[in-house]
Computed example of a mutant assay.
Amino acid sequence: MDKTMMYALLAMVIAGLATAEIASRRYRDTVRASANDTTLELLMTISLLVVTQPVLLLATDALGQWLAPGLRDAWAGLPWWAWGLLLLVGDDMTQYWWHRISHSPLLWPLHRAHHSAAYMSIRITYRNNFFYYLMMPGLWFSGFMVYLGCGWEYFAYVALKQTVILGAHCAWAWDEPLYRMRALRPLMWIVERTISTPATHRAHHALTNADGIGHYKGNFGNLLFFWDILFGTAHITRRYPAEVGLRDDQLFGEERWDKQMFYPLLQSQREYTALKFGGKIYSDE
Rank of each mutant, 00 (worst) to 15 (best):
A117L: 05
L178P: 07
M6F: 11
M120T: 03
T125W: 02
G245N: 05
A199K: 06
V51E: 05
V158R: 13
D258F: 09
K161D: 12
M93A: 09
Y147T: 07
I190S: 11
S142P: 05
D2F: 06
F141W: 08
G279M: 06
L57M: 14
L134F: 08
W98H: 04
R123Y: 13
E192F: 09
A11V: 05
P79Q: 13
Y119D: 01
D248Y: 13
D248P: 09
D29E: 06
L87D: 07
V55R: 00
T4C: 05
W98I: 02
G232W: 15
I229C: 15
L87W: 01
L43T: 03
A206W: 00
R32P: 01
D228N: 15
Q53W: 07
G70E: 10
P177I: 08
I122Y: 06
G151E: 04
P54A: 11
H115K: 06
D284F: 11
Q250R: 14
D284H: 14
D258W: 12
G16H: 01
F220H: 09
Y132C: 09
L85V: 14
K280Y: 09
P186M: 15
T60N: 06
T39I: 10
F226A: 15
A62V: 08
T4M: 02
G232H: 13
G16V: 00
N36I: 02
P105C: 11
R185Y: 15
G70K: 12
E41Q: 07
M1P: 00
Y126R: 06
E192C: 13
A274M: 04
T233K: 08
L224A: 12
D37L: 08
A274D: 10
F225I: 08
T197R: 02
E243I: 10
L148D: 09
Y263F: 13
Q250N: 15
G151R: 08
G218T: 05
L88E: 11
T194S: 09
L56A: 07
A203S: 14
E271R: 12
R238N: 15
L265G: 08
L42P: 01
I281N: 09
V55S: 09
D211Y: 04
L160W: 10
W75Q: 13
S283Y: 10
W257K: 11
V191W: 11
W174C: 03
R270S: 05
I281T: 10
M145D: 00
L166D: 03
A8N: 13
